[in-house]
Design a protein around this nucleic acid. Structure first.
Lengths: 176, 176
DNA sequence: TGGGGATTTCAGTGAATACAGAAAAGACAA
DNA sequence: TTGTCTTTTCTGTATTCACTGAAATCCCCA
């Protein structure tokens, strides 16, 4: 598969963003390529197109699959796996946020909780503990908000996104 | 300044989260320390407390200041700068998101836009270009949503956060 | 059960990043 | 100016992380 300049640019920039968002460059590039490709691609072809080592592609594909961002597609009469990107961008966003919350946010929140509690017995000054508790509360507020939002049906999420700030007008004047 | 075990744990975990969120460990640790500290701290003391090189602290503080997460406080009769963390956790969240959008999201969005346009002339298949445009649209939707939300007064943002999913009940049945 | 293609695992290499320590620059008082 | 204290810049080193290529494993078919 040969990439046009526009496709190359897309893949490269997507890879760069991915590198800054917690995945490595190759994973993000492969994801970009699969997202653009109209047909499922075998690992070999991905490696050629992006000039990556075959083994690297294999690892990256596993990671993408574990995140639910890539699915395997089997072709009749072909032993090789073919890979497809999730078609819907929202699934991507959802998976990325979910993953980051689980791996990076939740553990810290748990640690902050323990620190705030443990502080009572190890001589941590009360005002410091108060700051810890306040920090925890903010973290929990965001976490709860996220949990609730992620459970809403996709269509509702979309409406809210599209409404943007106009949704604020629906709020009662004196919100609790 | 001596840290209790609870404070150490807080600082360490915060540092770890920071490392996964785009800043380096030291920057995040310093931020955590300043967030806990009831009084402004001079750079020297920060370095001692966290066992970091003085130079490293200097660089980290500059970075934190450029992000608006740390302010300088001058003490009468003391030449040294003293540093304070922003008291409010929301300011932190706001700054972090703003920074990431500017540095990591917006440039990619711009690149995708150019790729989608340029594709017209370099032989990029129409269906591929369509996927690029769709990607761009989703990115723009999130970006617009963020831009609008960030302009709302803090109190409104807070109400919305606390309402969580209940806000969905305020939506008209057939949202556009 | 053996052979061949496809995939995964693993160890070594290379590049990027964070860090420490030294040197330089800046501010202030005498 | 000179001396002292503080802060910043710079350079080499260490660590971390991604990547490659080779070897091992897996899977399917004959």
């Amino acid at each position: 598969m040969i990439l046009t300049p526009a496709m190359q640019s897309f893949v490269l920039h997507w890879g760069e963003m991915g590198a800054r968002w917690g995945t490595n460059r190759s994973v993000a590039q492969i994801h970009a390529l699969l997202h653009l490709s109209p047909t499922p691609l075998p690992a070999e072809e991905i490696a050629e197109t992006l000039a990556l080592a075959r083994s690297n592609v294999s690892t990256a594909l596993r990671e993408l699959q574990s995140w639910g961002l890539v699915k395997v597609h089997r072709e009749l009469g072909d032993r090789r796996d073919h890979f497809v990107g999730v078609e819907n961008m929202f699934d991507l966003v959802q998976e990325v946020i979910k993953g980051r919350r689980e791996r990076e946010f939740a553990p810290t929140m748990e640690a902050v909780r323990r620190a705030a509690e443990a502080g009572a017995e190890d001589g941590t000054p009360e005002d410091v503990r108060a700051r810890m508790r306040e920090t925890l509360e903010v973290m929990e507020m965001f976490d709860t908000w996220y949990a609730e939002m992620s459970r809403l049906p996709r269509s509702t999420q979309l409406s809210m996104l599209k409404m943007g700030a106009r949704i604020a007008r629906l709020l009662p004047k004196a919100a609790d």
